[in-house]
Amino acid sequence: MTMPTAEVSAVRSANWCGCIPVVVNLAPTSLSSPTMPPPLHRMVSRMSYLHLGLADEVKRLYKFAPATLSFGFKRGGESGSLLTGSAPRDENISKGDGEHSAGESDDSNRTTSPNIIADTAKYPVCWFEDESSGMALRWHMFAGVLYDIMKDRKKSSEALPWRLRVHFTSYPTHQILSFANGNVPQTLEHMFNNSLKQALFLQHGSSKVAMGLSKASHQKLWDAIVGSHYALYEEINGDGLQSCGSKHNGGENIQYVPVRVMVDNKPALQRPCTVFVEETNSVKRTIGDLLADWLPDKLGGETSLVNNKDVSVSVQGISLSLSIPILDVWKCLCHP
């Protein structure tokens, strides 16, 4: 039975409202000021990237960082400009802005405006670290996915708020990807577009759908990510992609959906997944079917997975029954 379109849209809309309370501190190794700035609090959308959701906080903390970045770029001549790949400090940011206190609530619930990252030259190269584990966080993954990975390593009492450190020095190129030419927003956008093209190719088996998206549609999708704007995303997802043959909402004619499985913070498995059990072409494939098929050596089949209390399966931070059809999960909880 296919889920009604209205129900699918309602679940997706509620999912887009999901946020993570984050506390971000400046890493001591990136401090050049005599005093450490106070921590900054922010609600970050699960559907965003950390560098987007914490753009304001990054710029506020950057003025306390050293003038020379160890990422390989240094300040330029007398005008204070930077060589390609680094970011000038915003001298218009007042000390009061930089010392934004944890008690101020006006910033904590804001979504990121596209204007915050419009001037790509002013976004400093930085990286985030999970405080409790000390792990460098992979910036090309959505904030919700990163949090879910880190949450499994913490005690339940330590899971929220999510405490992060932002670094402006000692970029760990051996652990996480670098930003192309030091341009943070542009690299994020390119990474998102590439992921979208990969997903559409996995779903349709060709690049025709991805190539059919107009430049304006790509821009609207990216603006939806930057601003956590579900209505704008749905405008393209429901109309633009569907007109290219995606049939995302109704589920008709869908044979494959793109699935990415992450196990214990290891490299993801990314493949097209058939929505029906191949032998029947009518029985919907479930989460349990997929995991038993993709991870037989690790999980030992679906029965072993069900009985293994050390194994948990979640999508968008929600623990799901292994009996739920993959198609329903994809329609309701897929990432942009």
Rank of each mutant, 00 (worst) to 15 (best):
N193E: 15
K197S: 03
A231G: 06
W222E: 10
M191G: 03
L241V: 11
L200G: 02
S228K: 07
S195D: 14
F192G: 00
D239N: 12
N193F: 09
Q219E: 14
I236M: 04
N265D: 14
N253W: 15
V209N: 01
E235A: 03
K247D: 00
L196Y: 07
S228E: 09
K266F: 07
V263M: 07
A224L: 02
P258Y: 03
Q255D: 05
A210R: 08
I254T: 07
G250S: 13
D223Y: 01
K215E: 13
G238H: 02
M211F: 13
A216P: 11
D239V: 15
N237R: 00
L241F: 14
D223M: 02
L213P: 11
M191L: 11
D264P: 08
M262V: 04
G250M: 09
Q219D: 12
G245P: 02
A216M: 07
A216H: 10
A210K: 08
W222K: 10
G250D: 12
A210V: 04
V263T: 04
K220R: 15
V261S: 09
Q203F: 00
Y233V: 05
D264M: 14
K220A: 03
W222D: 09
V257P: 01
L202F: 03
G227T: 04
K208V: 06
Y230S: 12
M191I: 13
N194D: 15
K220Q: 10
N253A: 15
N193A: 11
F201L: 13
V257I: 04
N253V: 10
W222L: 12
V259M: 02
N249D: 10
L213N: 05
V226Y: 04
I225E: 05
G240H: 08
L213M: 07
G212C: 06
Q219L: 05
C244H: 04
S228Y: 07
N193R: 15
G240W: 02
S243T: 13
G227V: 02
L241P: 15
F201C: 11
N194G: 08
E235K: 03
Q255Y: 02
D239Q: 09
E252F: 14
S214I: 08
N193I: 10
N265I: 05
M211E: 15
S246R: 02
S214D: 12
K208R: 13
I236L: 04
K247Q: 02
E234N: 05
I236P: 11
K208F: 10
V261H: 01
G250Y: 08
G227K: 03
